[in-house]
Nucleic acid binder design. Structure first.
Lengths: 125, 125
DNA sequence: CATACATATCGATAAAGGCCGTTTTAATAC
DNA sequence: GTATTAAAACGGCCTTTATCGATATGTATG
């Protein structure tokens, strides 16, 4: 495995550690597998937008249809629709169709936990 | 307050509810204040990147210097440095300078909670 | 002082994401 | 069937973010 390590890196590590070979190995072991990172990334990307955060906050109190969310966000229909699509794709909201209305609700309480923890974390700074 | 509501919205709500005026009011109350959303947004933006997630995962086990994180990420020095800057600005990591090395560590255990919850959430899909 | 090296910042380019008017689909009522 | 309305998808334009070589800054050592 150490064949893939550039010489410059090896030299750096040589200077830093008694046992560079061992340290190198443990550094590589710190990398989580791609699937896990991709999964986490999908969730955080879905949350990394003001409109989408506002949608989830609004849905705390219960389900709302897309047209109501347009009022909450004060944004055009197509804009709101695309954000709802992203939240749904990420599994953060679920939908229920009733007649011509589509109702959105929180898909997993973990989504609310994320919002709360992020809020608390930012407060603490 | 209802002066700021477009006529089209009012008409939609008229069709939907017995007491549209009341419903409109409660819809507006669903909006959290800008500061809270900004704070949450800052956290999620910082987490919405594969390299930055990998950095935090690597720091789970303890502090690492920037040069070690270059090995973990297998990315150029300037790229890693800019991600570290973002994580620091977001309060997700803290730094300690020792000689010419800068050591990075998790700034708040809430950061690790976010990673875990996001992972679990995505698994459940 | 000069040199070496770790890290930080700058800046140009490339990639990704967001916005929103328009169009299409789907459900309902007549 | 037509008309109406909610929601979804399309597509062009624009803004934001990411990348990474080059340069600057900071910190040791001789």
């Amino acid at each position: 495995m150490s064949d893939s390590v550039p010489e410059s890196t090896r030299q750096t590590l040589d200077r830093l550690y008694e046992d560079p070979e061992n340290r190198l190995t443990s550094l590589f072991e710190l990398a989580p597998d791609d699937e896990q990172v991709d999964a986490q990334l999908g969730v955080f990307k879905a949350l990394a937008n003001e409109h989408r955060i506002r949608i989830l906050e609004a849905l705390k109190e219960g389900e709302l249809c897309a047209c109501e969310l347009q009022v909450v966000l004060d944004a055009p229909q197509s804009t709101v629709a695309s954000h709802l699509r992203e939240l749904k794709d990420a599994g953060l909201v679920k939908t229920r169709r009733q007649g011509k209305w589509t109702y959105y609700r929180i898909g997993d309480t973990a989504a609310l936990q994320l919002l709360e923890i992020a809020h608390a974390l930012a407060e603490g700074e």
